[in-house]
């Protein structure tokens, strides 16, 4: 089986703190991995390195077969745009654009035809269950609805890996679980691997594998499936 993501001995230090001290992690195609651990242990930093948003100071990240360190910034952006989907805690949708345009944006950036991009966006909004609000602005909808649109935006380009950093952090436990079910189903649907950062055991339990960080190192890795 080809790996969707291969992280080897990645190190990352901010100006003041060392956040990652040599983390290795492989994610198979279609696999669901939960990254857990106490606050400040480096979960977000790991995800940002893995998604090609931050450049690790040491170690390698191989995403969909491409070693990110060997790519130019433009190539990295392209890999990120086509192979990575990202869902953050607050959705982070553009407040001035409708849900549909928000979801279409990655495709439009990729150079797709506007009509086709919007059709694909609508299709994904349908799958995540907010199609009737496709013309609404993010501010007119609940956090959960925004989060659903963010899932659609993450999956619309058909990425190899979807990263979700505390996607349920701002939802109540029931809505959080529904969100998680949606993420898992959507990732399956789109054939993407899913890396989910969470504090919540009930959310982590959806994963095939748990990777627990502590102080920038992997404390343990257990298989759940």
């Amino acid at each position: 089986m080809t790996d969707a993501l291969e992280i080897q001995r990645v190190e990352y230090a901010y100006s003041r703190d060392v956040a990652l001290r040599g983390v290795s992690l492989g994610v198979d195609a279609g696999e669901i991995v939960a990254v857990t651990g106490p606050s400040g242990c480096g979960k977000s930093t790991l995800v940002h390195c893995a998604a090609g948003i931050l450049r690790p100071q040491a170690g390698t990240v191989t995403l969909a077969g491409r070693n990110l360190a060997e790519l130019t910034e433009a190539e990295r952006t392209r890999v990120r745009r086509t192979q990575v989907g990202i869902v953050l805690q607050f959705g982070q949708l553009v407040p001035d654009l409708s849900l549909k345009d928000n979801v279409a944006l990655p495709l439009l950036l990729e150079g797709h035809h506007a009509a086709a991009a919007r059709r694909a966006a609508l299709g994904w909004l349908e799958r995540v269950g907010v199609a009737e609000d496709s013309e609404a602005l993010p501010s007119e909808l609940s956090g959960g609805q925004n989060q659903r649109a963010a899932v659609a935006r993450a999956l619309v380009t058909g990425p190899a890996v979807v990263f979700a950093d505390e996607p349920t952090g701002s939802l109540d436990s029931r809505a959080g679980e529904q969100m998680m079910e949606l993420l898992v189903a959507s990732a399956r649907d789109g054939g993407a691997a899913l890396v989910i950062v969470t504090h919540d055991n009930l959310i982590a339990a959806y994963a095939d594998r748990e990777v627990r960080l502590r102080d920038g190192v992997v404390q343990h890795e257990v298989r759940l499936s």
Partner: peptide, 17 residues
């Protein structure tokens, strides 16, 4: 011990879900 316990409990939660 934590790792073993988390594995078995999370697995059980997963089954229940």
């Amino acid at each position: 011990y934590l790792a073993r316990q988390r594995a078995i409990y999370l697995h059980r939660i997963r089954e229940l879900k």
